[in-house]
Design a protein around this nucleic acid. Structure first.
Lengths: 220, 220
DNA sequence: CGTATCCTTGATGCGAGTCAACCGAGGTGG
DNA sequence: CCACCTCGGTTGACTCGCATCAAGGATACG
């Protein structure tokens, strides 16, 4: 496993690998809680396989999913001593858990690692800011289209290829709570996109992006 | 100006001061653009006085304000070589502009500064994530209440003091674009909060928090 | 005093939420 | 093997909160 220099533009494999080598692997069952809100934040996690949802709850049970973490993504990241959100396994998944104290100690005299930690946080901030625009200003159709394109690009498919099939690891409820919609609206919107031939739905969890021009127009 | 050790929990004055000493001061008129979307991101900024809005636009003109930066706040922060949002002066304001390259060079062999940069980014991420919950799941009343409490606490008033008056530097349109609402809904909601004695509005830009219990219940 | 800008208020419409029924894929046990 | 249940998803009828459209005030400024 080569060290690989960190560069500002690319999300090099290196920092995640560095983190990975310092921790231990744990498995979680579907819907298992990895950590809860207000729990002590002692670890940082890297997803190896499966998917994790990061969520916040309101007193009356309303839920907002901040992000979904797929293989290679890092979460648990915080300066605060307590987590300000919870993390749950969307599907059966494996994650690496690393003590924050160990990581920080190492970063203190490793400028490269230190920069990598910062870059990862900045990247997450950028994604979160994009999502703000989605939740604040986009319609249901636009939200769903944005979500599908995002999932497709994260699944590593070549950008804009026609007929790409994406398998969604999460339920409609998860999608709804991520997009600030209800389960019914998500379902109806997907049906509508299928009726207008923008996508195909061979099964509820599998989506084929048919007309990426239409989807991208909805994306902005 | 003492160096002051950076501590993980407190937002020490030190890192901002360090940044401040490396840059030059510039003034901007109301509504002036400080930088635009897709412009080269060569500087980082610190607000000295006044307020700045950070925004993103959709093709058809819909706008989402990501955050308002007040005195002491840092913005412009990004790993990417181009800005992914624009920054505009909400009111007459003064900011310090620092070359990112200089700052980064310094951070490379100053672990403390490096940690400070990371902590600032993490803090902004945390605020952005809270705002996701607001935009995704809160009602208009809750959004406005959350906003008012946030502005009050940032204005440095003692938490929860009754009768605190906050002066809002931004227009109703700015508030609406921050909260994912329309100007009319913001106005009506403020009127409604006034009618129910939760707040008082001596003038349109000045808000007195009368019943912080009601406001806090709306906050979650 | 006129005008521009910002804010408020009212009437009306629509997109998404709510409530409720139904469908279909597994899974389990008689 | 089939009856039954459960769980996730879809669909329909209706409601409601916020947006839209449209006037009308208030404040500041030349």
């Amino acid at each position: 496993m080569p060290a690989g220099r960190w560069s500002e533009e690319t999300e090099s494999r290196s920092p995640v690998d560095v983190v990975a080598r310092l921790g231990v692997v744990t498995s979680y069952a579907r819907n298992a809680e990895i950590f809860g809100e207000d729990q002590a934040a002692e670890h940082v996690y890297v997803v190896l396989s499966g998917a994790v949802r990061i969520c916040k709850l309101l007193g009356d049970g309303r839920r907002q999913i901040e992000t979904f973490c797929l293989a290679g993504d890092v979460f648990g990241w915080e300066t605060a001593p307590k987590h300000r959100f919870s993390a749950e396994a969307v599907s059966e998944c494996k994650v690496i858990r690393v003590k924050k104290s160990i990581l920080f100690a190492r970063a203190a005299d490793d400028a490269e690692l230190s920069h990598a930690l910062w870059a990862l946080t900045a990247a997450e901030l950028s994604r979160t800011q994009n999502h703000l625009l989605v939740l604040g200003r986009k319609t249901a159709q636009e939200r769903v289209a944005t979500f599908l394109l995002d999932m497709a690009s994260r699944a590593g498919t070549s950008q804009g290829a026609v007929g790409v099939e994406v398998t969604l690891p999460m339920s409609r409820q998860d999608i709804a709570d991520f997009l600030g919609l209800t389960i019914e609206t998500v379902s109806r919107t997907l049906t509508h996109l299928e009726e207008t031939a923008a996508i195909a739905l061979p099964s509820s969890r599998r989506v084929v992006l048919r007309d990426s021009v239409v989807l991208k127009r909805l994306n902005s």
